[in-house]
Design a protein around this nucleic acid. Structure first.
Length: 1080
RNA sequence: GGGCCCGUAGCAUAGCCUGGUGGUGCACCCGGCUGAUAACCGGGAGGUCGUGCGUUCGAACCGCACCGGGCCCA
């Protein structure tokens, strides 16, 4: 194979296997595969191939077009891609349009920033048309950049035909949905208190409010009681600027309030404060002493009237008659009396409606006081705070600061205010029960994401304010008549064109703003200037992506979505908005199953953020390790629904696993090439049938690995059924490392080295080929590049061009052999134990031993070792492997006294008892204790009875025997040498060193050599003469082997060697020399 | 303040539903193997199972409280 191009063009046809590069080079692999997919149009062909399959309607949660993807976005798409690839293998036809969320305030804010704008006025002056063109360009460019990034992650969604929330047909989906809401009576215009961003000059949704700690003034204010000189109600507030809008003070009806006389600076005042909070408040006000005059229930205070301390500043405050009202939401905090401004608070507003209080809101959209604000007119609320503070004068009981969580605009980070305004609402609160009912039929991964989390969120559902006073969004398709007040919701562009009698060139602002049509009353219908909350855009994705309502057929066929998956933050976001819109439009949940995934955090479990400097970009991982490694890491690191703690060590571990896979794959290739191996099959490609048919004739290790890989496929299937991608990917990695690399390849290596047409070797090829084919297919959803690359080399003539076009295997059940799998588990435990015992006996594995014995009481172990005896012998490098039930008779036992118990029992006889125990027959003692709980010792005319607790038993190893435990048994290795064993041991040492020299001399596997071996010990040299000399010659492919004793001898090839070396083998000096044999 | 999730060796993770001597991988130390070789294999050491209380003969597991982290809400 060429150095730069892994396969030449004709090689792609897969006529025969090629050798592979020495190391797994992700860059090369990925680049090659990317080009291959492109050249061969693999993605298109895969879609074509699966198109007759059962449809699986997937909806891509549209990422917001901010421009750059982060690790969480990458995770999201990798999850989607892996799951969808898996279902493609299973033959499903996937509806898989990518989607993008392209409207909204975040983009407006970015564009404003770029243009140096600070307010809506700047935009209006610049021109709405020009402004939204900028927004469109910005979103479009970002969308394209993001598609490229997603594609580089190996994500196979339809990026050539994405659904875009800014396209005409998509906008129509939103319009249509709103018209459905109108038909259902779910759309409502209302005067409500909303979250308001004074910078963006728009209402923002609850979901657009970000909370974090902020420092605000903390004021205790005295409201003078009407007609009672020196008597006050004490209230508390953190927003002095809302005091000009105060209309009432609220108390809790069931709380006790105290009327106290308190003195400060020689002045006496009468104050009303919640009884429990007296001390706290008076201390804040630095009152020296006080007397309680009266105690009243809150309900008794209701109706009490008071005056505003700002009456001289704000005309309204002078004319309004303020009074005390009762409210259950009042908490026993601060003073227990709450200042009520229905124009500036949600609770206040509701209370105001109930109590028929005026909704006074003297603040304009930009956060400045209106004419109604009296002396504060024109002042920004932010600046008004300090002025109000000064104006309060003596009415201020105390001032301080408080740090508390406060809402901010998610885009521009400006502290939000609450304003009472006219807005459009979807009556989501009325849908609550219907939505709760609908999600019962949805399958959630994990289960609690639906039953607990989403359920709890839905219970709190409030009306959804869908109007925004902005520009870059889907215009509200609502036209109103100023003459009669009627409104009409337009459902489609065609409808609008018919009504207005004009073409609609672009359904965005400002183009639609000028379109009017006559009202039934004779007046003119004009569009409401607002646009949609951007969350409404994506809410209609499940039908918008199908082109509904313009196209009906796909909708009827596919909707609702079979599957969606997004991060846990979308519980309140997309999971909710879609459900709401769909429940209104169709009375039905828009999805059948939902996987809620976690967040990507840094290694310490903290949120990744630019300010913390702990952000890991997906490209960084790709640059350092590769796409497949990123994918496999992110999928296997933890369960999808847990937060991912990104960890470079983990990435490295995955890299290691994949490079082992690479080595496993590469290992048989040279031999297969040498033997011109061709996988079974015909014109239709590789056929696993033949190996299934003759599986019973294969070696145990072959049958075992075939069974294992089949079990693995089942494991992956089961895990994927529950969206447990971590289990699926871990199982595959585990298989590669444990079963394939550490075990099977070790067992069959020698079979690969067999010369000529050995059946054993053919079987090993067939087995390994089958395993690799299955394995890369199991891997293909997770590591699509590597799987494709390996497939390209392994595939047979007639096979599909891409690994992603193979079908999930179904006929392998005959390969399953659970009994064999569990027997092999025992053998592997045996193998570990042998290695352990050899290590204790300091006998290298290269040196054969005479005998290995397994002592066990478990029939399972007996059976397993018996069934797989030859594997056991080979692995143990032992002439014999023996299983004994119970104990091995060569192992003696000795008893030892436990002096802590013997001492107290026998006093000064204890030393004698000790001697008797040590001298006694341990087996006899054991039997007696087992039978009667005690054993008798006699000696020196005395008789002692010892209890079981006084003795411990130890094995007494004969010379040369070493033991190690295994589950349900013990393994004994006899490391004693005899001349036969020694001869083989030395022969192996010589072979190994000659092989090492061959490798260093860079000889090809098939090359022949001439060699000379000089052994520095005559006895050893003699041991090697004859049989072992021939073995050495064959193993190292030597045409001539000169074996000499310490006296030396004449060089075999004129003293000119390619390589010479000296060694020390177990204390015996060794000199070796080799050269390539001349060609014949 | 509320809802949901997470907290197990230096790091990561399994076990928790269905209570009974806490597995695994990486890193570390020691050893082995050597035609997968810039690979591979074995062994060892390392754990207050976030903390505390409770239930129980027995708790990583069940309950309660608290601490820390995440997402969401107020």
């Amino acid at each position: 194979m060429g150095k730069d191009k892994p396969f030449e063009s004709e090689e792609v046809r897969g006529d025969s296997v090629k050798e592979a590069a020495g190391t797994y080079d992700t860059k090369k692999v990925e680049q090659w595969v990317r080009e291959f997919w492109k050249d061969q149009e693999i993605y298109r062909r895969v879609r074509e191939l699966r198109s007759p399959g059962t449809p699986l309607f997937f909806v891509d949660g549209p990422p917001y077009t901010t421009g750059n993807i982060h690790l969480g976005t990458a995770w999201n798409k990798i999850l989607k891609d892996s799951i969808l690839r898996y279902h493609r293998l299973k033959g499903r036809h996937i509806i898989e349009r990518a989607g993008y969320d392209m409207h909204g305030l975040p983009i407006e804010v970015k564009v404003e920033h770029r243009l140096g704008f600070t307010s809506k006025k700047d935009i209006e002056e610049y021109g709405i048309g020009r402004f939204i063109e900028e927004c469109r360009r910005f979103a479009q460019a970002n969308m394209e950049a993001m598609s490229e990034q997603f594609k580089s992650l190996g994500v196979w969604l339809d990026f050539d035909h994405p659904y875009l929330t800014i396209s005409e047909d998509y906008i129509e989906a939103a319009w249509w949905t709103l018209s459905r809401a109108e038909e259902e009576g779910m759309l409502e215009q209302g005067h409500r208190v909303v979250n308001w961003c004074p910078r963006c000059e728009t209402a923002i949704a609850d979901s657009e409010v970000e909370y974090w700690d902020a420092t605000d003034p903390s004021l205790f204010v005295k409201f003078p009681v009407r007609g009672a000189e020196g008597e006050y109600l004490v209230i508390w507030t953190t927003t002095p600027w809302t005091l000009p809008a105060n209309v009432a003070a609220a108390v809790h009806p069931q709380v006790i309030y105290a009327k106290v006389r308190a003195k400060k600076d020689g002045v006496e005042e009468t104050l009303w404060i919640a009884d429990d909070l007296l001390d706290l408040v008076l201390r804040k006000g630095r009152y020296r002493d006080f007397t309680v005059l009266d105690k009243r229930l809150g309900s008794d205070l209701v109706g009490m009237e008071y005056l505003s301390p700002l009456a001289s500043r704000v005309p309204f405050q002078a004319s309004h008659r303020h009074r005390v009202v009762g409210a259950d939401f009042v908490a026993i905090e601060n003073t227990g009396i709450v200042h009520i401004a229905p124009g500036h608070g949600w609770d206040d507003y509701l209370l105001g409606i109930r109590e028929h209080l005026p909704v006074f809101c003297p603040v304009d959209p930009a956060g400045r006081f209106t004419d109604e604000g009296g002396s504060y007119r024109g002042m920004h609320v932010r600046d008004a705070n300090t002025v109000v503070l000064a104006d309060l004068g003596d009415a201020l009981l105390s001032r301080g600061e408080v740090t508390h969580r406060y809402g901010h605009c998610w885009r521009c980070k400006t502290p939000i205010i609450y304003r009472a305004t006219e807005q459009w609402f979807l009556k989501a609160s009325e849908l609550r029960d219907a939505m709760l009912e609908e999600i019962k039929g949805v399958t959630w991964y994990p289960e609690w994401a639906g039953s607990a989390r989403f359920h709890d969120w839905l219970k709190e559902a409030r009306d959804w304010c869908i109007s925004r006073q902005r520009y870059w969004g889907i215009p509200l398709p609502i036209w109103t008549c100023r003459a009669c007040g009627a409104h009409r919701v337009v459902g489609t562009i065609a409808e609008l064109e018919a009504l207005a009698g004009t073409k609609v060139a672009d359904p965005h602002r400002p183009y639609v703003d000028g379109i009017t049509f006559p009202c039934a009353c004779g007046g003119t219908m004009r569009r409401v200037e607002d646009i949609f909350d951007v969350w409404f855009d994506s809410a209609v994705a499940s039908w918008g992506t199908l082109g509904f309502p313009r196209r009906r057929e796909e909708f009827d066929t596919y909707w609702p979505a079979d599957f969606i998956t997004e991060g846990q933050d979308q519980t309140r976001g997309w999971f909710y908005s879609q459900l709401g819109a769909s429940t209104i439009a169709f009375h039905r949940a828009p999805y059948r199953s939902v996987l809620m995934h976690g967040f990507a955090l840094d290694a310490e479990g903290r949120k990744m953020s630019k300010s913390l400097g702990n952000v890991v970009a997906p490209e960084e991982v790709i640059r350092n390790y590769g796409v497949d490694i990123l994918r496999l890491y992110i999928l296997s690191a933890n369960a999808p629904w847990d937060d991912l703690k990104f960890n470079w060590e983990g990435v490295k571990t995955v890299q290691r696993a994949l490079s082992i896979l690479w080595n496993v794959y590469r290992f048989p290739l040279p031999y297969m090439i040498l033997d011109r191996y061709t996988p079974a099959g015909g014109p239709a490609g590789w056929d696993p049938g033949p190996i299934r048919d003759r599986v019973q004739n294969l070696a145990a290790e072959d049958r075992w690995i075939l069974s294992r890989v089949t079990s693995l496929a089942r494991e992956v299937e089961a895990a994927m059924a529950g969206c447990q991608l971590h289990r699926a990917t871990r199982a595959v990695q585990e298989f590669v490392l444990q079963d394939l690399s550490r075990w099977y390849v070790q067992l069959v290596r020698h079979r690969m080295w067999l010369e000529g047409e050995a059946q054993e070797k053919q079987d090993a090829y067939d087995t390994l080929y089958h395993v690799l084919r299955r394995l890369i297919q199991l891997l293909s959803p997770f590591t699509p590049y590597l799987a494709e690359y390996l497939y390209q080399n392994l595939k047979a003539a007639g096979d599909p061009p891409s690994v992603h076009m193979l079908d999930w295997p179904t006929g392998d059940d005959r390969l399953l052999d659970p009994a064999l799998e569990s027997a092999m588990e025992v053998v592997r435990a045996f193998d570990d134990a042998v290695a352990n015992a050899r290590q204790a006996g300091k006998r290298k594995l290269r040196w054969p031993v005479a005998e290995v014995v397994v002592a066990t009481t478990s029939p399972k172990v007996v059976e397993a070792i018996g069934m797989l005896a030859s594997i056991c012998r080979a692995r143990a490098n032992s002439r014999k492997v023996l299983v004994v039930e119970g104990t091995w008779d060569r192992i003696g036992r000795r008893a030892e006294p436990v002096m802590k118990a013997v001492g107290p029992a026998f006093g000064k006889d204890a030393p004698r008892v000790r001697e008797l125990v040590l001298a006694a027959d341990a087996d006899r003692l054991r039997h007696e204790i087992a039978k009667s709980g005690k054993a008798v010792l006699e000696g020196g005319g005395h008789r002692y009875e010892v209890a079981g607790a006084m003795l411990t038993f130890h094995e007494r190893m004969p010379e040369g025997i070493f033991a190690a435990p295994m589950p349900d048994g013990t393994v004994y290795v006899d490391v004693a040498l005899n001349p036969g064993l020694e001869a083989e041991g030395y022969a192996r040492e010589v072979i190994r060193r000659l092989q090492e020299m061959r490798r260093q001399a860079d000889l090809a596997v098939e090359d022949f050599i001439v060699a000379r071996v000089e052994v520095g010990d005559l006895r050893v040299a003699d041991l090697l003469k004859g049989t072992w000399e021939a073995v050495i010659r064959d193993e190292v492919r030597a045409r001539v082997l000169a074996l000499a004793g310490p006296a030396g001898g004449s060089p075999a090839a004129g003293g000119r060697w390619m390589a010479e070396a000296e060694w020390d083998v177990e204390g015996v000096p060794l000199r070796t020399a080799i050269s390539r044999a001349p060609d014949r």
